[in-house]
């Protein structure tokens, strides 16, 4: 068990912290749904902004709600490792999707009649 005593001061601090994060997340959710209205952009822009917003929200959730900030190094390492592995899988699949049936592909470039 955590050796530190959970004091009334800790309690107050945490309530305020969670309150702040909740407010921030609500605000970001609002932005998420209103984004296309005030920064109306093409697909790339929308997708990019939306994913940035989602990533910020994700970061807040993981760091504060899931208190990764105060977790042990093993747990932190686990999370970084997962995200890294998932990233690698995305990149490799991306390479294949991108190259397949494309003039960018290594030898296929020679095919004229494709």
């Amino acid at each position: 068990m955590d050796t530190k005593e959970f004091t009334e001061k800790d309690f107050q601090e945490q309530i305020i912290m969670y309150g702040k994060i909740l407010a921030l997340l609500l605000f970001l959710t609002g932005v998420t749904f209103l984004q296309p209205l005030f920064i109306s952009q093409g697909l790339e822009g929308t997708l990019f902004l939306q994913l940035v917003l989602a990533s910020i929200k994700g970061f807040l959730i993981v760091a504060y709600y899931m208190h990764l900030k105060t977790a042990s190094d093993v747990i932190k390492g686990t999370v970084y490792f997962t995200v890294f592995i998932l990233g690698v899988l995305f990149v490799i699949m991306g390479i294949d999707s991108n190259m397949d049936d494309s003039v960018l592909d290594m030898f296929q470039a020679v095919t004229a009649s494709h």
């Binding site: 290594m106 030898f107 296929q108 020679v110 095919t111 004229a112 009649s113 494709h114």
Partner: peptide, 13 residues
């Protein structure tokens, strides 16, 4: 594989 996969341009399909 390079020889195998480099499609010739003058081929019959």
């Amino acid at each position: 594989i390079k020889d195998n996969r480099t499609m010739p341009t003058d081929a019959k399909h």
